[in-house]
Design a protein around this nucleic acid. Sequence first.
DNA 1: CGAATTACGGATACATAATGTCCCTATTCG
DNA 2: CGAATAGGGACATTATGTATCCGTAATTCG
Lengths: 162, 162
Amino acid sequence: MILKSQVEWALHCCAILSGLPEGRYLSTKALAELHGLPKEYLSKALQSLSQAGLVHTTLGPSGGYRLAKAANELSFLDVVEAVEGSGRTFVCQNIRANNPCRPKGYCESGPCAIARIMWEADEAWRAALRKVTFADLGKILHQEISPEIWSGTFDWVLKRAG
Amino acid sequence: MILKSQVEWALHCCAILSGLPEGRYLSTKALAELHGLPKEYLSKALQSLSQAGLVHTTLGPSGGYRLAKAANELSFLDVVEAVEGSGRTFVCQNIRANNPCRPKGYCESGPCAIARIMWEADEAWRAALRKVTFADLGKILHQEISPEIWSGTFDWVLKRAG
DNA sequence: CGAATTACGGATACATAATGTCCCTATTCG
DNA sequence: CGAATAGGGACATTATGTATCCGTAATTCG
């Protein structure tokens, strides 16, 4: 059970977008170049973000993406679910119903206990991702990235931001 | 990102095995029949449990599986990891290293902040599964399964347990 | 002892999903 | 108008999950 690499890409892209000045946009091409990713395929991940309403887009030259809301209101969970979907990691196929000891037509009282426990773990995972925003990430990155790379990347991005 | 159905199977099988009297064994055939699963394929899941040391096996007629430790010492996480592996759900491909603004040969100070956050969520998921044992599950099931099905299944299993 | 039954592991086939590429369209900027 | 962009559909490739089959060694029972 491994998350798609598009999730990683989307997170890194949002990290960059969260540092973009108000009203500026950054293109797929620039984001792909910055991360060494295939432009066409990265585009699919960005489209997922767009469809989820997490980013705003413009067309034409100088077009691209920006966050649709403030960085402190965009959580990791938002991005992960936009790309990966919001389904559960555990799907209950209700195999208890195959128990030959059951009376025919027996009706379940509710979801399987095993599934409920697995879903609680899923929810713990979601809760952990929900509480971290891209404002939080920005602070962490600002602390641990060397100042030259930080400002160098910032300039690189600004030069390409429409 | 969805867990293998083998995880569900293994959990249900351990639930049954945890109700087995001391020293008795239950075969793949019986477990498959009880859950309506393909015997040959379920066998792979049970082998994973065996390799992880979670169950004990015997060969020959009247052979099969039993738990290798007490139900209150076997956690959901044990079973999930035995089948699904203990790797993280988020794999960091370190795409930050592709940043063209970096000096050549630049050496990372540590794992990517994004990866660390994702791994913390993974750990929250694991922690939730680690704290639930099959003794806990047994109590829950005993409360919510109708007495006829409970004892009917118990008899069915005992009749086939070697 | 011999036959039946079992766990175990390897080989193989198939379906589904992830990954990646290509091309066309509508829109927007200069 | 021409260039650059997001968006989306079609397709190829690869990896993974699902499932089946068969051979081997060990064990039980008659």
